[in-house]
Design a protein around this nucleic acid. Structure first.
Lengths: 210, 210
DNA sequence: TTTACTATGTGACATTTGTTACATATAATC
DNA sequence: GATTATATGTAACAAATGTCACATAGTAAA
């Protein structure tokens, strides 16, 4: 069975009995790119482990402005969805499928049960929170100390790491992720092109800097 | 023994055997206000649980600029110090005692050991990561979407919650926390005073808004 | 009480980022 | 090929924030 392999391969080192429960209680879903998987405001009844694809986590404020936090990939879990009591009136966390995505949805009741039963699950949950916390630390560092040009560079580099040097994003999409405006991003990208860092095409550009 | 009570009262609901280990293996330290407890760059060999006082967590960049993230108080633990593999060339997390502080220092080897032995410890660690993550989410929300006037208001309100309506901070200190400049903060505080939100004294001001 | 130090107030100006308005270019559809 | 939609380029201006310069006002030390 392909699905079982996917769980074991992406989440290695868990107990055999836990794998079996995951297969039994979890539901594997194929989700097309662009789908919103999670909005913090609505009650979350399931937790998500990514088996394939990339999911983007961002915050959204009252006016619909977005702010990109980080991506999660196969073998990672969405911390936010793991135990959800977080409430914030004016902003919410959103998870959106960047590519077609395969996720293992696990109803929340099992999440807690497993904490009691499986040591490896405990460690996994801790690792997940820790990893997401550190991602956020990086994000905070960027917006706290850096100007838009540096933030843009950091953003592009993250993309390159995950998706390769061909960045298939419009300036508008980048502007949304950085909570800036299209014109500002166009300006800065143009400057990068003049410096020889990138080559701009329509709908995409390439990162040339080593 | 007073110290034992302090641990039990501030960290209720743990296993008896765990309390005993905490007393045996941990070292209780009295730390004067202003002390830097932790710099991320140096190797951390101990984890800290706060028994009394307030510890401030902030990031610092290469040029010495600061950026306040959140406070931790009695009954809470420093997530950053719990399992430390985090590395970042250009910035570091710093923990500084805001008041005189009593901490329980626990050498890192026990942190891991206890994860294997005590369920309640596991839950505590997860709760800690989760709580700090959510604090950071709020912080990100602030800097990502809001202007300095709103950020300042949010900052002051946090202070009021922890320390009461008398804010004993200079404009310079606030400016550092928000990675802004003294003049900007003075300007905004003056505006708040005109609006009747605060009354400014030397070295302090009061929050009057309900 | 002078002196010195630190905190605060404020105007003028620089820089960064956001906004408006419109031009141009490329791809998609008819 | 003409038409339409979407993406990008760019100048001019606006708003927010940062910086510089200096004034003033408390507080502490001599």
């Amino acid at each position: 069975m392909k699905e079982k392999d996917a769980i074991r391969q992406n989440f290695p080192g868990l107990e055999e009995a836990l794998y079996e429960e995951m297969e039994k209680c979890g539901e594997i879903m194929e989700i097309p790119a662009g789908t919103t998987l999670l909005r913090k405001a609505q009650i979350i009844r399931s937790s998500m482990l990514i088996l394939d694809g990339i999911v983007k986590l961002y915050q959204e404020d009252e006016e619909g402005n977005e702010f990109f936090m980080y991506d999660i990939e196969a073998g990672e879990a969405c911390a936010v969805s793991m135990v959800c009591t977080y409430r914030q009136e004016n902003s919410q966390v959103v998870a959106k499928a960047l590519t077609d995505v395969t996720v293992l949805m696990i109803p929340l009741e099992y999440m807690d049960q497993w904490l009691g039963k499986y040591k490896s699950w405990h460690y996994f949950v801790i690792r997940t929170w820790k990893a997401r916390y550190e991602e956020l630390l990086n994000t905070v560092n960027e917006i706290a100390f850096k100007n838009m040009d540096e933030r843009l560079e950091f953003y592009i580099k993250r993309q390159v790491e995950k998706m390769g040097p061909q960045i298939r994003l419009t300036h508008q999409e980048i502007a949304s992720d950085l909570n800036s405006s299209r014109e500002v991003i166009s300006r800065l990208l143009k400057k990068m092109e003049k410096n020889g860092w990138i080559v701009i095409h329509r709908n995409s550009f390439e990162w040339m800097k080593p």
